[in-house]
């Protein structure tokens, strides 16, 4: 499978063989946050906003957060791409936009098929039994009833919920947080995806479960066309990815082979001589 360590200029190397699965073309993403109005009474501001629409946005205290700025990249089939960057640099936001769950302000994201985020937490209900949640989660991800039935035993076994007794028939609210996290991961990982987006999912459960889930991610990666992995663990990025995108303050700062980018990134974050005392930012770039 992925025997293509990403090189820096993929597009012009062997254009006939490399099939793009995700193309981001100058993507900008902006969040609008209501109710941050400072100064004037926010009730009138809110009314103003409703009546006058966009024009009044600024006056009414809607803050715009420019989370991703002009990011372009092409991801190819068979690649596993790591997304790194300090907290709040726009990694998860970019991932959501690739999944089609967030709108882009400018630019376009083109995808082959429907990329999916790995995660079903939102569809599960704590008051229901683990068993019913397996079905609910599977259906929410777009599996058919028959598919869920077929995978059911596999999911339960993988989660290890029943290792210590018949817990799958208890409501999920009775699970320990670790057990619940394991079941959630097992459900989410039960489906094969064309383009798989993983947002720091590796850090759940105990050590043995982590090992198993890393293995499962690798398996998913073999079936999936392309994998995106957001993680703060440089080790798991090294283990899984052959190409890394480094986002900083919403801007794509580096894009290249894992080792090269991670070396720079480590210098940037952990390098004892470099990051000890941050230099004052130039004013032009200060606020987003």
């Amino acid at each position: 499978m992925a025997d293509t360590p990403a090189d820096k200029t993929p597009a012009d190397k062997t254009p006939a063989e490399r099939v793009p699965t995700v193309v981001a073309d100058g993507v900008d993403i902006v969040y609008r946050v209501n109710g941050t109005g400072a100064g004037r009474g926010s009730a009138t501001a809110a009314l103003n906003r409703i009546l006058r629409g966009k024009k009044a946005e600024k006056a009414a205290g809607v803050r715009r957060v420019h989370a991703v700025k002009n990011v372009s990249f092409v991801a190819y089939r068979g690649e596993a791409i790591g997304l790194i960057g300090t907290n709040g640099s726009g990694k998860s936001t970019l991932l959501k936009a690739v999944a089609g769950l967030l709108p882009v302000e400018r630019g376009r994201i083109y995808t082959d098929g429907q990329p999916s985020l790995l995660g079903v937490n939102a569809a599960l209900m704590n008051d229901l039994t683990g068993e019913r949640n397996v079905y609910l989660g599977g259906l929410a991800m777009g599996m058919s009833r028959a598919q869920v039935k077929e995978r059911y035993q596999e999911i339960v076994d993988f989660s290890g919920i029943n290792d210590k007794g018949d817990f799958i028939t208890l409501p999920m609210r009775t699970y320990s947080s670790g057990m619940a996290a394991r079941l959630r991961f097992s459900i989410a990982a039960a489906k094969d995806h064309d383009v798989l987006l993983v947002d720091e999912a590796l850090a759940t459960g105990d050590r043995s479960f982590q090992k198993r889930s890393e293995e499962r991610i690798r398996e998913l990666r073999q079936h999936a066309g392309t994998v995106f992995l957001v993680s703060h663990s440089n080790k798991s990025i090294r283990d899984t990815c052959d190409r890394v995108l480094w986002l900083e303050r919403g801007e794509l700062r580096m894009d290249g082979p894992t080792e090269e980018v991670l070396k720079e990134y480590e210098k940037f974050t952990g390098g004892p001589d470099k990051a000890a005392k941050p230099k004052p930012a130039p004013k032009a770039k200060a606020a987003a």
């Binding site: 200029t9 372009s72 300090t86 640099s89 974050t269 230099k279």
Partner: peptide, 14 residues
């Protein structure tokens, strides 16, 4: 953020 975003050393994806 630790450092100002420098002139991007990014190798353009395409």
């Amino acid at each position: 953020v630790l450092d100002p975003p420098p002139p991007t050393t990014q190798a353009p994806p395409g």
